[in-house]
């Protein structure tokens, strides 16, 4: 199979305006991936499926990942006037890094028996701009998996034929697989509480004692 750099080069040559970034992966598994942009997502997917050299006809796995907002501390060198002389001072700048939701597609080829090519799509933020193009029209195996990501992460897939909750009931609020989801407080009674569960049971008892 071609390397991801070659695939990236061919995508940008064939689809004008497509932005593709290579995401390295330095752990022993060595599975780097391609980050593709939202506007050309469906076009790129179509190319991956139909290109005679790649023939990535089998979408194996679709995963949602939640990356919450983080505060990154960066060390910067600032020129400051110290006692009348301009000197270099080490300062720390706190920068808020916008969180996003990510969907990862693992695609293989049954025709050529190679793979995986890993493709990622990212939303702009976690609350409002959570729209991504659905790849279900290209590979039907994404149908239930994208529905699951919609249910558990809240990514809205434009172009999905049947986007409803799949695992939780209709009328459920929130997206439980997000990192900041607060679970319902039903720790009335714990037979053998310890560690985290003991803390939760205690907080439940304390709250009910106030009420």
């Amino acid at each position: 199979m071609e390397t991801l750099e070659q695939i990236k080069g061919r995508i940008t040559a064939i689809i004008p305006g497509a932005r593709v970034d290579l995401i390295p992966n330095e752990c022993p598994s060595n599975q780097p991936s391609l980050l593709i942009d939202q506007e050309h997502g469906v076009r790129i997917a179509e190319f991956l499926r139909d290109d005679p050299q790649l023939r990535l006809d089998y979408l194996s796995n679709v995963t949602g990942v939640d990356w919450p907002d983080t505060i990154v501390k960066e060390k910067v060198k600032v020129m400051k006037l110290v006692e009348g002389v301009e000197t270099e001072v080490h300062g720390v700048v706190e920068r808020k890094k916008q969180g996003y939701l990510e969907v990862v597609y693992h695609i293989y080829s049954i025709a050529h028996k190679h793979g995986p090519v890993i493709v990622r799509l990212r939303t702009n933020d976690r609350n409002v701009a959570v729209h991504l193009p659905s790849l279900t029209p290209i590979w039907r195996s994404a149908e239930f998996q994208e529905r699951e990501i919609y249910d558990l992460y809240g990514v809205i897939f434009d172009g999905h034929p049947d986007l409803r909750r799949i695992l939780m009931w209709d009328g459920f609020e929130g997206h439980p697989m997000r990192k900041d989801y607060v679970e319902p407080d039903d720790y009335e009674y714990e037979p053998t509480p310890h560690d985290e569960v003991l803390e939760r049971a205690r907080s439940h008892q304390a709250r009910n004692a106030v009420l």
Partner: peptide, 10 residues
């Protein structure tokens, strides 16, 4: 504690 990275095994 594995190193930072990701893997898909099947």
């Amino acid at each position: 504690r594995p190193k930072i990275g990701e893997v898909y095994g099947r």
